[in-house]
Design a protein around this nucleic acid. Sequence first.
RNA 1: GGCGCUGUAGAACAGUGGUUAGUUCGGGGGGCUCUCAAUCCCCAAACAGGAGUUCAAUUCUCCUCGGCGCUACCA
Length: 484
Amino acid sequence: MEVTMVRVRYAPSPTGHIHVGNARTAIFNYLYARHEGGTFVMRLDDTDLERSTEENIDSMLDDIHWLGLEWDEGFLKGGNLGPYRETERKPLYDLYLQQLLDEDKAYRCFCTKDELEAERRRAEAEHRIYRYGGACAHLSAEQVEQNITQGKPYAIRLRIPEEDVIVHDLVRGDVQFKTEEFDDFVIARQNGIPIYNFATVIDDALMEITHIIRAEEHLSNTPRQVFIYRALNFDVPQFAHVSLILAPDHSKLSKRHGAVSVGEYRLEGYLPEALINYLVLLGWSPKDDREFFTVDELIKEFSLEGVGKSGAVFDKKKLTWMNHMYLGRKDAVAILTILKEDFAEQYAAAFGGLPEDKTLAAINLTKGNAQVLPDLFALARNIVQPDIVITDEKSQEVIASPEAKQVVQYLVDHFDAIPFGQGNDAMSSWVEDLRNQIPLPAKKLYSPIRVALFGSKDGPEIVKLFLMLEPASIRERLQKALAL
RNA sequence: GGCGCUGUAGAACAGUGGUUAGUUCGGGGGGCUCUCAAUCCCCAAACAGGAGUUCAAUUCUCCUCGGCGCUACCA
C-alpha cells in the first residue's frame, strides 16, 4: 500500500490580526500535521492588494508566532513547491488556464457585465434559477479570433461536465451535488486574474496538499473546485470542513461583538495556551470529560473524527475561566516576562523601579486570583506599593466597621507579638491564635485584616500576607487602616 | 428562491434502540471554625416538532420548522 505523507496548509489572507475562527482552522491544521507527522505549509493568499499590506502581514504573523503555530514550509520559510505568495504565482495560473483553453475544457466568455446582469434579472423576473446561458460556450474559432483582435475583453469559464460530484468529507461524510446545479462558472476575470476557487485548486494541487482542513463556508464551493481538479487531471485531496464560530446571537462572529482577533485577546491579557485550549474545545472533543490539554497532548490526541459538525458559539466567559486557571498554574517568572513585554506601560506604573524578586513574589501570591494578565497590576500592586488602594465598596464597608477598627487596633497594640522572620509554622499558629485573643467570628476577624494589608476582603491567605510584607510596611498599613 | 451543512440545558461538548440522559462554563444555594474567581457539595436547566420502523426511539428513516453557509468576473 502506498503511504502518502500528510501535507496540510494554512492560507490566510493577510488582512490584519487573525480572526479566532481562522485561528482555530490554523490550529486544527497544525495539530493534524503534527499528529500525523506530516508537513504544515503556509501560503499567503495576498491577492487582495489593498489590504495585504506589510503591516497587516506582520500582524498576522505576530498572531501565528504568538500561538506557536510554526509551519514547516512556505512563506518566509521556503520549500520546493513555491512561490508561496499567490501574487507571485500568476505565471502558474496562466499556464493552467491556457491548458484548459487548449483542451477546450474552458472557453473565453465575451459577455459584458451588463449582458450578464440583464440575463440574471430576466431569470429572476420569471422566477427561474439563474445560470449562465452559454452564449459564448460554442463560439467558432473564427469568432473567438475576431473578438480578440477587436480587443474585446473576456473572462474564462470552465465547462461543467455532466457528472455529479460526491465530496468525501472527513467530518461530514459523503456530500452529494448534482451537476445541473452548476453552470459554467468563471475561473479567470477579464483582467486575467483567476478567481479564488481556481487559484486555490492550482496552489493546493501543485503544493501537493493531501488534506484540506478549512471552514464550513467553503463546503458549497468544493464541487466547483472538484470540477477544476478533474479538468486538470489533478488528484482530488481529502476534505474536512470545520463548522463556523458564532456570536452569542448565532450570527457570524464579527467586530461588533467585541474582541474577535487573536491580537485583541493577547492585548486583553489572555495566554496563548489558554486561547488554544479553548478554541480547540470549540468544535473538537476528545470524547471524554477532559478539558485541559497542553499543545503536546493535543497533538497526541487530535483527530478529525472528534471534530463536531455544528456551529459553535464563542463563550468569552468560559475562555476567561480557562485563562484564569492557566494563570494560576503558570510560572511567575514567565508571567513577569509577558507583563514586561506586552504590558510595558502598565508594568512601569505598577512595579517600575522595584526589585524584581519583590514583584515576582507579589505575582506569585496573587496570580491565582487573576482572570486576565492586567488584573495582576491591581492585585499585586497593593502588595508591593506603599499606598494601598481599596477599590471595591464591600471591602471599604468591611474596614469601616467598629469591629474592624477593634481588630486593627489590637494588632497595632500587640505588634511586637507578631512572629516575623520565624517561619511559616510560627506565623500560622499566631494567626490561628488570634481567634482566642479576639472574641469575634472568624470572618469578622480576618476580613478586616486582609483589607488593611491587601486592600480587598478577597485575596491571598492572611498568613501569606504577614510572611510576604515587610514588618514596617505592615505597621504602616495597619495605622492607615485605623484612619479609614 | 435553489442547493448544501446543521439542530442534546443559557453556552460548549459527551452519550445510549430500554439510563435517574453525563461533564464543563454560566446562574442559584451551601460547606471549608479567614475570604475569593481556588476547592468540595447541592439545586434549577436539554434530547426542536411530527410521522414511520420497532415490543421499545433522544438514538434509525422521512417530513416540517429553526440556525448557518454557498449561490459573484469576493475570499
